Amino acid sequence: MPEGVLEIDRISKRYGEVVALRDMSFDVRAGELFGFVGSNGAGKTTAMRIALGVLVADSGEVRWNGRTVDFDTRRRIGYMPEERGLYPRMKVLDQLVYLAELHGMGTNEAHTSAENWIARLGLRDRRTDEVQRLSLGNQQRVQLAAALVHEPDVLVLDEPFSGLDPVAVDVMSQVLREKASAGVPVVFSSHQLDLVERLCDRVGIVSAGSMVASGTVDELRSSGETRLVVESPTTEWAATLGGVRVIERNGTRCVLELADGMDDQAVLHAALAAGPVHEFSRQRPSLTELFRNVVTIEGRSA
């Protein structure tokens, strides 16, 4: 399998007066899980469809291994749409074999691969069922198998965890990790930010068609506001400090948010002046909190 990078380079897309994407740029590296997060309508699905060639960008370019993505390249991409793209009256096994053959596999190879993924994703008892007779969760498993059956070089998955029970989420997470470990670039969108935080090597936050923040989870969390957790007999002293905002209070424990340039040692000094301090630590925002902050700030500046 060739190693490479999927590059989304300054793509833009407009529908009349509506700007769906504005100079969107990011890359997904070989062996990397890249989480693509944003509110509904932020542009995630549009960007993925352009990467697949389902839509054409007004400007910009999509590249794989430094070359513009063409028809042959797209056959090597595994795509999982948010809206299920399966034939409802076709049987699971027949459908997967058919899709593998469309991507260039021979019949025997396609059958072997389809059976492997059916077994791996817990669908063996449903292999001869019509897709429309499956539960929504099992349909989602078949949709993942359809993205994987031709052993793609790149995976692009739009909300792959939607509608899955916890066991299926664990199975899918393991599959994505294994694909990344084998050198496949994997990009997926999800509203389940705790899952993104746990799984992904890097994350991109999208707002109003633009990439507004990108980096590892640690980098993104470190870029957020400085927060301190302080536990002392009284917390009244915190309200008297300039450049400090009390965002949570629970008895003798409070969470403070510091303005840029505020010295945390000044906070410690003020707390000690009021009595003994039993806890004094930094608190980094979760990806969910960071996402809310970034999207809110971008919305106000738009």
Rank of each mutant, 00 (worst) to 15 (best):
A168Y: 12
S173T: 15
L136E: 08
V171L: 14
R127H: 10
E159Y: 06
L157T: 08
P160Y: 08
S173L: 13
E130D: 04
A147N: 09
V156W: 12
V167C: 02
R133K: 15
P152R: 03
V175R: 13
V186I: 09
Q140L: 04
K179L: 11
L136G: 10
Q132L: 13
V142P: 03
A147E: 09
A180I: 04
A145M: 06
S162G: 05
E151Y: 00
L155S: 08
R177E: 14
V169H: 06
A182Y: 03
P160S: 05
D170F: 03
V156Y: 10
A182F: 10
L144T: 12
V184D: 04
S181W: 00
A145F: 02
V167P: 00
E151S: 09
L136S: 06
P166M: 10
P160H: 07
E151K: 04
A147Y: 08
T128L: 11
A147G: 14
E178L: 10
V171Y: 03
S173H: 04
A145S: 02
E130C: 12
P160V: 04
V175Y: 12
Q174I: 05
D129V: 04
R141Q: 12
Q140G: 11
S135D: 07
E178N: 07
L134A: 05
R177P: 06
L157M: 08
A182P: 01
D158R: 11
R141W: 00
L157Q: 06
M172E: 08
P152V: 02
A147C: 08
E159H: 15
D153S: 03
L148W: 03
L136P: 00
E178R: 13
V149P: 01
S173M: 06
D129L: 13
R126A: 15
A145G: 05
L157K: 11
E130S: 10
L176E: 06
V184Y: 13
G137V: 14
E151P: 00
V149H: 01
L134P: 07
D153Q: 13
V167H: 09
L134E: 06
D165T: 11
R177C: 12
A168K: 10
L136T: 14
A146M: 01
R133W: 06
D129N: 14
V171A: 14
P160C: 04
L164E: 08
G163A: 10
V171N: 12
S162F: 06
V156Q: 09
A147M: 07
D165C: 13
V142K: 00
D170A: 15
H150P: 02
P185N: 03
L136C: 04
Q174V: 09
Q143M: 00
L164T: 14
A145W: 00
V175H: 11
L164V: 09
L164K: 06
